[in-house]
Nucleic acid binder design. Structure first.
Length: 568
RNA sequence: CGGGGUGUAGCUCAGUAUGGUUAGAGUACUUGGUUUGGGACCAAGGGGCCGAAGGUUCGAGUCCUUUCACCCCGACCA
């Protein structure tokens, strides 16, 4: 492509609403333009990057025997009613009626459609397993789209669905998909981590997220310093903690502790580590048809992890509760403890099981119990893992230490089980001629989000730095001064030769000055720019490496071979 | 959905407290000339229903009311 003919509207200034590097640079370099909240136009460069990613996905999917399909974007609302998700998805589902007043939704994900496609067409165990996928625009009417391509309402996702006769076969496929996804991200040149994820709400026996490591990521993940373990903070667990402070030994007693309603006050009052205090976090727990106040107890040094709390109580959701509401129940906020108190349901963190030398609220204004031995309630109380892990805690699989990172969730793979096949009555006949629901897996990968993730991980102050496998063009041949006929000729020749060799190459043949064109090349982020300019008098040109910003002088007759070697 | 902010040229923004020529700058764009190794210079141009609707006024970008859009923090997010 000739730069003089290309539609690449670069700008010096970023749109005022862009905050993340990926958003700023993709907009400035002429990849995307915003249409409305969460909606973007992809311009030629972005389209090329998207195709690159799609090709890699297609290749890896093909290797593991997954077949590509394409399901309709507009889906009948009936299907969503059948699975029950029309309620659950709520306002994120964009609904509308056609001219005959039939209700439709724009597909936010395609479990229903895919199950509908397969049911009554695949009816025998002999035709299983089956893995179908598509790469397609999705629409979710997000409450708050943000960060450019990172969280749009309209976005491109690869979504795959597998169908199995046995859970063992699903496990095998799940592992194969994890491997394929890792391969895709590795090929794209990304630093990522596969982490364990929460899968409570959707059910199923497990899910993993693929996280691209980047400071701007919206998810926090805990990773082990020694082994492969990694988990979303919502699902992370620990086997212990770093250093356990010295225990404050005391006889069991009730103590007057005025004005110590917070853990900090309490620890200060007794001059002890918060580790030996019991924290109470009261929440309103929402069930389908009732709302209940539940008291969550954990060590004072820990925090409640809400997703774990929801899973522990089988709730739909959890909300804050006010002090007034607690008082109405007869509770004393700031002094609530798990002993001698049955005003509300308790959930106690497993780390408190049999805990000794604890200090907890006495359920009486200005009083705490000291020297508490929680083993007295360990038989009767409900224990669950509800505390969030902390940095420095011990890995659940080895003796390594956990630390936190920020990640961008670019993939999520799920063992779905029979949730959808049962809801939609999608069954096959097994060896015994008995009808069984399909056992399913689902595998998502955010294609447009990957475009942003690549830049979040690969950029500098000058702009984008595309990895070789994701670059819209591999080589940019820049003629420094097109009025210099020799420069232009050498540039044109190299451009043609590279093109004939199948290299994706841009020829910057614009009538602008050197500096302008260099800044532009850096902003766009071509992996290599060949500068045909001043050094031509010595019979050489320069190869500019975008990642390192280093210029290497190369003789004209060697530059082609050198480039072919670099781009391998 | 709660809290905050912003809408003026393609883009980034002044101007609005105190209403008053023909609404500005930078950048981008067009034309001519000079320049050609790090977003050049000179000159001349084109480009605006000042987010929308209603109101107050002799007069509204500016004041009042309503409304829409977008952004940020939070809630939410298979």
């Amino acid at each position: 492509m000739r730069r003089s003919r290309a539609f690449i509207p670069t700008t010096k200034e970023a749109p005022n609403d862009a905050t993340l590097p990926s958003h700023i640079f993709l907009a400035r370099a002429g990849f995307i333009s915003q249409v409305s909240s969460g909606l973007y136009n992809y311009m030629p460069l972005a389209k090329r990057v998207i195709k690159k990613i799609e090709n890699i996905i297609n290749e890896e999917m093909s290797k593991v025997g997954a077949q590509e399909v394409e399901l309709s974007f507009v889906t009948p609302a009936d299907l969503w009613a059948e699975s029950g998700r029309i309620e659950k998805f709520g306002k994120e589902l964009l609904r509308f009626r056609d001219r005959k007043e039939n209700l439709f939704v724009l597909g936010p994900t395609h479990e229903e459609m895919m199950v509908d496609l397969v049911r009554n067409r695949v009816t025998s165990y002999k035709n299983l397993p089956l893995n179908l996928y598509q790469i397609k625009t999705k629409f979710r009417d997000e409450a708050r789209p943000r960060f450019g391509l990172m969280r749009g309402r309209e976005f491109i996702m690869k979504d795959g669905y597998s169908f199995h006769a046995t859970t063992e076969d699903l496990d095998r496929e799940f592992d194969a998909m994890e491997a394929a996804y890792k391969k895709i991200l590795t090929r794209l040149g990304l630093d990522f981590r596969v982490v364990e994820a929460d899968s409570g709400a959707i059910g199923g026996s497990g899910s993993k997220e693929l996280m691209v490591i980047a400071d701007s990521g919206e998810d926090t993940i805990a990773i082990c310093s020694k082994c492969e373990y990694g988990a979303n903070i919502e699902a992370a667990s620990r086997s212990g903690r770093g250093a356990i402070p010295e225990a404050p030994e005391a006889e069991f007693n009730k103590f007057l502790t005025p004005d110590t309603s917070s853990i900090d006050d309490l620890a200060e009052f007794f001059k002890i580590d918060p580790y030996y205090t019991v924290k109470c976090v009261a929440k309103k727990v929402i069930y389908e048809d009732e709302i209940e106040v539940v008291l969550f107890f954990m060590r004072g040094c820990d925090n409640l992890q809400e997703v774990k709390a929801i899973n522990a109580t089988d709730a739909l959701d959890i909300e804050d509760v006010s002090e007034e509401e607690l008082r109405e129940l007869g509770l004393t906020p700031g002094f609530i403890g798990p002993l001698d108190q049955d005003k509300a349901k308790h959930v106690i963190d497993t780390d408190l099981k049999n805990a000794q030398n604890m200090i907890c609220g006495a359920n009486e204004q200005d009083y705490h119990f000291v020297g508490v031995d929680l083993s007295v309630i360990s038989e009767v109380a409900y224990f669950a893992e509800i505390a969030e892990v902390n940095e420095g805690d011990t890995c659940p699989h080895c003796d390594g230490e956990l630390s936190f990172r920020k990640g961008i969730e670019v993939g999520h793979i799920f063992k779905l089980g029979t949730t959808y096949s049962e809801a939609l009555k999608a069954e096959f006949l097994d060896e015994n001629g008995k009808a069984q629901p399909f056992i399913m897996g689902t595998y998502g990968m955010g294609v447009s989000r990957l475009v942003a993730a690549i830049i979040e991980q690969h950029h500098d102050e000058s702009g984008c730095i595309w990895t070789k496998q994701s670059a819209p063009y591999m080589v940019n041949v820049m003629v420094s001064n097109i009025k210099d006929e020799e420069q232009l000729k050498v540039g044109e020749d190299l451009y043609e030769r590279l093109q004939n060799a199948g290299v994706e190459v841009m020829l910057d043949d614009r009538k602008d000055r050197f500096g302008f064109k260099m800044k532009d090349a850096e902003l766009i982020g071509f992996p290599y720019t060949v500068v045909v300019g001043k050094e031509l008098v010595n019979g050489s040109v320069q190869i500019f490496d975008r990642a390192t910003k280093e210029k290497t002088t190369v003789a004209i007759d060697e530059v082609f071979d050198k480039l072919m070697e670099l781009i391998k």
